[in-house]
Simulated assay, not measured.
Amino acid sequence: MEIKKPTLYIIPNFIGSNDSLENISKYNLRIIDELNYFIVESEKKSRRFIKKILPTKNQDDLIFFQIKKNKNDINNEKYLKPLIKGQNMGLMSDSGNPVIADPGASIINTAHVLKINVKPLVGPSSILLALISSGMKGQRFTFNGYLPINSKERIKKLKLLEKKSKKNDETQIFIETPYRNNQLLDLTKKVLSQNTQLSIASCLNSKDEKIISLSIVEWKKEEINLNKKPTVFLIDAK
């Protein structure tokens, strides 16, 4: 008889302010209810998420391994101790899917090295939601994460992404720390070519959700406040 291996489940969290249980499948609820060990970005937010979706689950039974944000912390096996001992675990971030613009990739890689099963659960990704609602190319795209903070380097990067988009006929996607969104939007208006398409997807899955796709010349006529609002930026150069 085949021995069932322990599994690391990659658990999606809510995005936006719409934290209705309607956004979570019954399968996800069942899996999370069966788990007591979790690798998390923030214990407080993860406990709140579990309490929201499974109010009767005993919080005292839950054990959390909080991911350290120290780049020198390379001992991933310490997060996986329950798995190594035969227990299933869940990996979750504070919002949306883990790993994409969030920590967890190196831990999952270590799980593969240790021959541990890895199973992603279906859930929201702001990056993909922004892409499919932008009207831009979904066949070829690149997610670039955060742009450089330095002004000169940021301008250089924006021009490079525009060049790549046009040369490779692909959508370029990037994000910013929410309190710098307005500055980034203003910079794209100044730096990018008039015909380049820019899409912004802000506050996805919330009552303040905005998804707008316009050319740069059209954006120069628009006024929008993105300050402190989670936003995904996408460009498609013509």
Rank of each mutant, 00 (worst) to 15 (best):
V191C: 08
D60S: 15
S125F: 10
F64C: 06
P148Y: 01
L161M: 10
E176N: 03
G90N: 01
L184F: 09
K163N: 11
S46L: 05
I155F: 14
Y179G: 02
N70A: 12
P6E: 06
D236A: 11
E170I: 09
L226V: 09
L234S: 07
A201V: 09
K85S: 15
M92R: 00
T171G: 07
Y27T: 11
R180P: 01
E153Y: 11
C203Q: 14
F141V: 08
G16W: 05
A105M: 09
C203E: 15
L147E: 02
T142P: 00
K5N: 13
G90H: 05
I3T: 13
I31K: 01
S20V: 04
I108F: 04
V122W: 01
G138M: 03
L8T: 08
S46I: 09
N13M: 05
L204A: 12
S133W: 03
V217I: 13
G135V: 06
P98Y: 04
D236Y: 14
L131E: 06
S93V: 03
G135M: 06
I31Q: 03
P12W: 04
I63C: 11
V113G: 01
L226A: 09
Q66T: 15
L83S: 12
M1D: 13
K163Q: 14
E223Q: 13
K220L: 06
L114V: 07
Q59M: 15
L158G: 10
E22I: 13
P6D: 05
N75W: 07
L198E: 03
L198P: 05
I132E: 11
Q172F: 08
T171S: 13
